[in-house]
Design a protein around this nucleic acid. Structure first.
Lengths: 193, 193, 193, 193
DNA sequence: TATGAATGAGCATTCATTCAT
DNA sequence: AATGAATGAATGCTCATTCAT
């Protein structure tokens, strides 16, 4: 059945929206084009009028999710604040983006290392992390953070956040607020000098 | 073509072995029963003689991988040593298990949150972590570790290790030895008091 | 991409021209309306403004090809010349028409006995052969040709020419000029008294 | 509905038989695998158990038709007879093979220059004609036939036969026996010295 | 135990045609 | 006259599973 906001969207948008939802909830392989069509309120042929293949839909969603992600990061790095505040603000904003966009989180987790995302697309997405790396680079030079490869720091911290999101979405956190604080401390202690 | 050690294994073992290999290298969905049969040197019907379904094969592999995992942990917790040594030994042994068994690592990553592993199976696997939780519990009580829920610690540390393995398997580590040391320090600093 | 002479043609002509080209080179079934539209520089809807269906386009091309064919025949029957000269001139002119219009040749070969050409259309096209039949009729009466049903003669001779064209277009003729002479002799000997 | 002799054939044979029938009567493109399955009394999957693709079925039929053809030729070249008798016997036997196997005739006509038959398959089929070429070669050397490339003779004579078969199958021959005699004379006169 | 032929629902994609603008 | 978004039935093919031997 076509979903609620459908009246406001173009068919192209409806297809993207529906596909994100379906893939996030039931995996790519369990999401046939016929279901995307039905739930988008569109004929199968119409999908192929807008996208060359299932793969292309997935890539489009992937890239626009990464763009959203970058926007979050950019608006949460405030160089005027002290380093710890910036770090916490960054950590929380990424966490909250994922929690508020669980579909995007599950979608990216699922699709990230799948053959649906080719090297080119993945590389295109990588550029969005540059600013975070610069933040860590500066922090190390200023003596705030331990000396470590910034990509390594980035992956480890991002892994911490993902762990928390995964636990939260799987209802493994009994007092979320408290445990999030603990996790932030975990990350901060891990890299602070 | 049937793989090398096939002479030594029962058909049941061949099927499990081949399936692990195929799923790790090419994903569950890209691994049809017909291919499992062919590469196991077995007829399709034979597979169904030993296993009720594709799902059951996956579950069997999942559980035996988790058992291997537990064996590693058990043989690497030496209460006589000091806490940091134990922690590092544990961290490294898990890391090395994954690096030496990349098929198992990829398999578990892929299958972990898929519909192939139902709640019952997942719960069954959880018991294998009890000893690690006890290690952290004791460490917190003795004032070595920060006060945090042990499951949270467990997931975060395990996440750190997985991040490193993932990077290593994707050739993202230029000087692996040095970066592994950094990552261990990262994990230790994150929880030490 | 729209083809070269497109500036000089009406959209209707462009569609016919493009369709002939595409069908000759890649078969009817491999020629979707969408491709005809694209290569004609026209919208799909526009095609249906000019033609009722794909079938109608094919029929139009078929009939106009047959008309061209008749024009060739008419201008190559010169009753003043002796019979053998006329025969050779006719044979060569048909051969050359096909060689110079390989698209038309391939198109007709392909479409001739297909369901795209119905009985009515085929009958309509038959009329164009009347003059050739009259030529053979007269030749038989004058004792130049063996006594045979003229339609049979017509089909056999036309078959000879088509065989040569087919061989030429498939590069099966090493010294074309010489072999064409042989083929003409073949046809002439076959019917001369 | 499954056809009549189905009880006597293996599924593989039924599929080949049905496909020949369908393609001969309605063209390859108008013959979906689903129809082949239904009329063979077999599931679609079963077809793919025996053949890799639609193309492979077509190729198998093509090759076995060509083999039948060769068998006919071999059993109708009797070097002890005089040349004209041999020629007529050959001509008639090919003609009769086509008339008695109209499905094979239509099938080959349709498939011969289609992309379903690749160069390799076509070349494989060519070898079957060697004996005919030898017959013409010998006839030329002995002064019975005009000097012409044997492949050219072969194609032209075969074209004559095909023309007759085509006319017969399309009910264009009013007194078939008489016209066949005429056509044989046509072919003989065309090459005799 | 073991085999592998057989099944048929399901999938991604195509394409002639329609129709609102 | 012209456009091109939209349609949906149809296609070739896949694959987990069954079952007679």
């Amino acid at each position: 059945m076509p979903n609620d906001y459908s009246v406001w969207m173009t068919k192209r948008e409806k297809i993207l929206h529906t596909t994100l939802e379906l893939i996030a909830n039931q995996s790519i392989q369990a999401t046939p084009m016929s279901q995307i069509a039905k739930e988008s309120g569109v004929a199968t042929g119409t999908i192929y009028h807008h996208f060359a293949s299932k793969e292309e839909i997935v890539q489009q969603i992937y890239l626009s999710t990464k763009q959203d992600f970058q926007r979050i990061i950019q608006s949460n790095l405030h160089p005027s604040q002290n380093v710890k505040s910036q770090f916490i603000s960054l950590w929380k904003s990424i966490y909250e983006y994922y929690i508020n966009n669980p579909l995007a989180f599950r979608f990216v987790q699922q699709v990230n290392y799948s053959p649906y995302i080719n090297e080119t697309t993945r590389a295109e997405a990588q550029q969005y992390y540059q600013e975070v790396y610069q933040f860590f680079e500066a922090g190390i030079k200023a003596g705030h953070f331990v000396e470590m490869e910034v990509v390594l720091i980035g992956e480890l911290i991002h892994g911490n956040i993902s762990t928390l999101v995964e636990m939260q979405l799987n209802n493994m956190l009994e007092q979320p607020e408290s445990q999030i604080q603990h996790a932030i401390e975990f990350s901060w202690n891990a890299i602070k000098v």
